[in-house]
Design a protein around this nucleic acid. Structure first.
Lengths: 200, 200
DNA sequence: GCTTTGATGGTATGGTTGTACCACAAAAAC
DNA sequence: GTTTTTGTGGTACAACCATACCATCAAAGC
């Protein structure tokens, strides 16, 4: 063999090019050529590492889903009080609100994939089904913990409240993406509601 | 002149074909040809009534936005108690949760347009900016009315609460579209939260 | 009765897209 | 030192798309 190339690294490089390309002009305008140009490789190489466009899109979606998990986890970690239920819940939900350009691009592509997966059977949106399910259980568990610790309103139904929080987070995030609201407004509304769930 | 055709009717017929086509295989897969086939006319006719594809897509978006307004209004009207603030608010918010196939298709295309308008400058999502703004004012006004009538919790901030309700509605609707939740679950969660806003 | 004009069909065209094919270099294997 | 094998480039190809162009038919105007 010649150059002895690290396949995973090359694949990551190309996927990143795809994400950059999608961020600027939309997932629908991504082509083999545009990805190749952005990655500064030949179209042939993109084919070489991802046989078909469908597989490339699929790989990018998987990477996106992974990064989403990492993002949430890192949010929780960097939030000082790593054991305070309210802090954790707040961190998780705030992740859905895009603040800087990078985060905005990330959530835009994620949303584009989610919507696309509804009609495109090849994408079969597995990440979009599993992730929110885990999230819901996660939130419900921490809400229960908070209730037992006395910081959350004991009258709340943790399970319904978790679903509600997830919907609020997604809805606010989407409205920021659509430029209907500023990130600051969305954050304020989220805090407003959290103050109701965690009184005092 | 020959057949003396009603242009608006023809345009509506073609736009409906586009919406049907988009509902089944996604807005991204809509082509002049697919629309022509679905409308059972020649491609040339589609060109005749909508010069360019961009204009066709734009016209369909406008029609969609109009229909959305009508839908909400009709929901409010058919909801018996047309003067009860809670009933009105509930009706408006429930409209975003797709129940039957028709409503699901409608909201799917609407969402696809919304997401597309972020990256496609030609679509310049005016409907997606104006509509939620009006909605927010509408909800806030009715919340205030409810507070004065004593049916809504007087401690609530009508404006923040309105934004929150809109986000909940959009978030739940999206999760139903993505098959993360059933329409029944989403409706239940919405009712759960409304019971908090309107106690008693 | 001719002429204009609105409505329609068919088809050509230029561009783009995903993918298949051919070629080649360079290092590893033996 | 020859033979594989792996990475890479270039290019050709078939499909498809939006759109422009040409033709036609029928009714309205005069």
């Amino acid at each position: 063999m010649p150059k002895l190339v690290d396949h995973e690294e090359r694949r990551a490089h190309i996927i990143d090019a795809l994400l950059r390309s999608a961020a600027s002009s939309g997932l629908h305008s991504v082509t083999m050529r545009s990805v190749a140009v952005e990655a500064d490789v030949s179209v042939r190489l993109v084919q070489y590492y991802f046989d078909t466009k469908e597989q490339l899109l699929l790989a990018a979606m998987t990477r996106l889903a992974t990064r989403m998990g990492e993002r949430v986890q890192q949010r929780v970690r960097t939030t000082g009080a790593a054991t305070d239920p309210r802090g954790i819940i707040e961190a998780v939900l705030l992740e859905a609100v895009p603040t800087d350009e990078e985060s905005r691009a990330f959530h835009l592509i994620y949303t584009e994939y989610a919507v696309l997966s509804v009609t495109d059977p090849a994408l079969g949106g597995r990440p979009f089904l599993a992730a929110p399910d885990e999230m819901e259980a996660f939130l419900a568990a921490h809400l229960t913990a908070a209730q037992e610790a006395g910081t959350a309103d004991p009258h709340l139904d943790p399970r319904q409240e978790a679903v509600l929080l997830l919907a609020v987070s997604a809805g606010l995030g989407l409205s920021v993406l659509l430029d209907q609201r500023t990130a600051e407004d969305a954050t304020a509304v989220l805090h407003y509601h959290l103050s109701r769930v965690f009184p005092g």
